[in-house]
Design a protein around this nucleic acid. Structure first.
Lengths: 151, 151
DNA sequence: TATTGTTATACTCTATAACTATA
DNA sequence: TATAGTTATAGAGTATAACAATA
């Protein structure tokens, strides 16, 4: 096997493991919050709402568009987990967790802390080893990749 | 901070890094094959076609539905990278790389071997450390997750 | 004029179901 | 009857563009 083919195979193996592990983490989170009848995107939003937050800011935290947050807010409101409360700037609506929402938020966090495969399948030492390697990989990327094609 | 919140934060940090690293790997591959004017799904298929392969088998390799492979084959055929050749069992069509397809396949593999961030941002030692950690994470999952909700 | 949230729409990726031609 | 490939369609997830209210 040529050296180029070896390099390719190494990159492919790591890529597949990385993608598989990420999908595993996503599926794991979906399963945990699924027991609370929450789709993962709503669960992520609930976790992000540590305090009343303008919808625009939530979009920033979730790294998505404002228009997508509208749907998230609708879903959370239907479930009685948040209220839209007007801000002092009357263009702004704050998403504020209800009592039920705060309860669900705690359950989500407890469920992850108690059952996540990231905690159960890796020892603290393994996580401590893993993190800097992943950081090395994503280094040079800010929240939005600045110039992906030119890298 | 309570221990549950600490556990949650640890899981979240690892999850974000994992997902970020996987997205980074995907974007990197897309950028590499983008220079060959290939979308990532077609590039993956070209790489998988080491020899003439029934479309059904390609679906298995790419872990997707037969119907999706039809579109991939159309795209590759339009670009002159594969031919559909009838099999001995006349239900079967083999996807066979053209000369141009074989050339592109080599370019994809060379591009990855030469430029992948998985190779440039990690030393061989780091990759050797990373792999078993990721394997530990995805362990217990067969190709298709058997019972995600019950895990 | 610029910004917030909303709406309507569109796009990407992928699957399901029904169809045909073989076997 | 079962399987290979195709087609049409649908769904999830997310973005873009235009809009009303407010600043």
């Amino acid at each position: 096997m040529t050296s180029a083919a070896e390099g390719f195979d190494q990159a492919r193996r790591v890529a597949q493991l990385l993608i598989g592990a990420a999908e595993c983490a996503k599926a794991d989170f979906a399963a945990i919050v699924g027991e609370l009848d929450l789709p993962p995107n709503l669960a992520r939003a609930v976790v992000a709402l540590d305090e009343p937050t303008p919808m625009r800011d939530l979009a920033d935290r979730l790294v998505c568009d404002r228009s997508y947050v509208t749907g998230i807010a609708d879903g959370l409101e239907q479930r009685g987990l948040v209220e839209r409360v007007p801000g002092v700037d009357r263009r702004i609506k704050l998403l504020s967790l209800t009592a039920r929402g705060r309860d669900v938020r705690e359950r989500v966090m407890a469920g992850v802390a108690g059952g996540s495969v990231l905690l159960t399948r890796l020892t603290p030492e393994q996580r401590a080893t893993l993190e800097p390697l992943l950081e090395a990989l994503v280094q040079g990327q800010r929240t939005a990749l600045p110039d992906a094609a030119a890298s």
